[in-house]
């Protein structure tokens, strides 16, 4: 097993503009390495080349120059995709298949068959919360449901690398939460994840390392803690605290040379509230 899951070297991709001489430079001189077992987040504004990079890594798009490899296998080879699960952005599957049939179909493409495939598909439908919709055609699925079936499909072949392009787009908060947990579980099992998302809060929660792209270039890269952590601050949340206690806490901190930077009434955050309300119903 290679210690490097994804290796990108001097990658450039230019798309021709029809009827013009110029080209769109979607990716420029990108070099990147994702070690096995890491969760890597690609961030950047719209059109910065994140999706294009992922497609090149998966061999779906041919690079103009540079090379990419997955677990040491060149992306252009079919074998490089043997241990990979991919969730494309805005996934869209065959409308005429049911949820279960979709998983069976993709499972066969991964080389699974028979009852192991059936079991695995049922299990994944449960994991992504689509058990009830398993026998409905995808034509009637909502956007979030498609996203979920896409995730299930990506997890089918017991991949060692997951490439997720905006996995939580269109998914309800509970689902987004579940997906976050799922990714963390994958991480615990040693699965490498390449992820891109516009929800920075979520990225911050689950990614080990991030890279920030703009106009095809990698501008910054590093560990989350290094980039965003404030090492000299700490948050403290109290319940039923009397004003007197707060007063004395403030005095104690001043005495020890520390400083209270901010103090406000804590709110239940909206996500937690939403989760509470919807949990009660089911």
């Amino acid at each position: 097993m290679s210690a490097t899951a994804i290796l990108i070297k001097d990658l450039c991709k230019e798309f021709p503009v029809p009827f013009r001489r110029e080209t769109v430079k979607a990716v420029q001189n990108l070099s990147l390495e994702v070690p096995a077992g890491e969760v890597y987040g690609l961030l950047g504004p719209n059109g910065s080349g994140k999706s294009t990079t992922m497609k090149i890594v998966l061999g779906l798009v041919r690079p103009t120059s540079g090379t990419t490899s997955v677990f040491g296998v060149d992306s252009r080879r079919v074998e490089s995709r043997e241990n990979v699960g991919f969730l494309p952005e805005n996934p869209y599957f065959y409308k005429y298949l049911t949820g279960l049939e979709t998983l069976l179909f993709f499972g066969k493409l991964c080389g699974l068959a028979g009852s192991p495939l059936r079991e695995r598909s049922r299990e994944l439908l449960h994991t992504v919360g689509l058990e009830e919709a398993a026998d409905r055609r995808l034509g009637g699925y909502s956007k979030g449901m498609l996203q979920r079936i896409g995730l299930a499909q990506a997890l089918l072949g017991e991949p060692r690398l997951l490439v997720l392009d905006e996995p939580t787009a269109g998914v309800d908060p509970a689902g987004a939460h579940a997906i976050r947990d799922l990714i963390l579980q994958c991480k615990q099992r040693g699965i490498t994840v390449l992820l891109c998302s516009h929800l920075l809060g979520q990225v911050q929660e689950i990614c080990d390392r991030i890279g920030i792209m703009d106009r095809g270039e990698l501008l910054a890269e590093g560990r989350i803690d290094d980039l965003a952590g404030k090492k000299n601050q700490i948050e403290l949340v109290l319940e039923n605290a009397t004003p007197a206690l707060l007063e004395s806490l403030g005095a104690m901190s001043r005495a020890s040379g520390a400083q209270v930077v901010s103090q406000r009434g804590a709110r239940t955050d909206l996500e937690k509230f939403f989760l509470d309300v919807t949990r009660h119903r089911s």
Binding site: K55, L58, G59, L60, V78, E79, R81, E82, V84, F86, P88, N90, P91, Y92, F93, Y94, F106, L109, C110, G111, G150, Q153, G157, V163
Partner: peptide
């Protein structure tokens, strides 16, 4: 158009 092709070719399918 539907980009179903991406999902299929992202599997080990030539």
């Amino acid at each position: 158009e539907d980009r179903t092709l991406y999902t299929i070719l992202a599997k080990p399918v030539s």
